[in-house]
Computed example of a mutant assay.
Amino acid sequence: MSPAPLHSVSVAAAVLDPQGRVLAIRRRDNSHWEPPGGVLELGESIHDGLRREVEEETGLRVEPDALTGVYKNMNRGIIALVFRCHLTGGTEQTSIETDRVTWLTPDQVRDRMSEAYAIRLLDALPTDEPRPAIRSHDGEHLTP
Rank of each mutant, 00 (worst) to 15 (best):
L60P: 08
R135I: 01
D138I: 09
H141C: 04
D29P: 01
D138E: 02
Y71F: 15
D123A: 14
V39L: 14
V39F: 06
T68L: 02
G89I: 03
P132M: 10
E63S: 14
P18F: 02
G139A: 10
I79W: 14
L81G: 03
T88L: 11
L60C: 06
V39W: 03
V54T: 15
P3F: 03
E57R: 13
V62G: 06
P35Y: 13
N75V: 13
P130S: 05
S95Q: 11
D128T: 12
S114F: 13
L42M: 11
R76D: 00
L40I: 10
E97A: 07
I78A: 04
R27W: 11
S136Y: 09
E57W: 09
L40Y: 05
S10I: 02
P35C: 14
G89D: 10
M1F: 05
D65L: 13
P36G: 10
E41A: 12
Q93S: 15
E129K: 14
V11N: 02
L121A: 14
P132V: 07
T88R: 14
T58R: 07
P35F: 12
R135K: 14
V22F: 02
E92H: 01
G49Y: 02
D128Q: 11
A13H: 06
M74Y: 01
P132Q: 07
A116H: 06
S114L: 13
Q108V: 08
M113G: 08
R135M: 07
N30F: 00
P126F: 05
V109P: 03
T88P: 02
R76L: 12
S136L: 10
M74I: 15
I79D: 07
T102I: 04
W103A: 06
L67Y: 07
T91P: 00
T102M: 09
H86P: 01
A24V: 14
L67S: 04
P5N: 02
W33H: 12
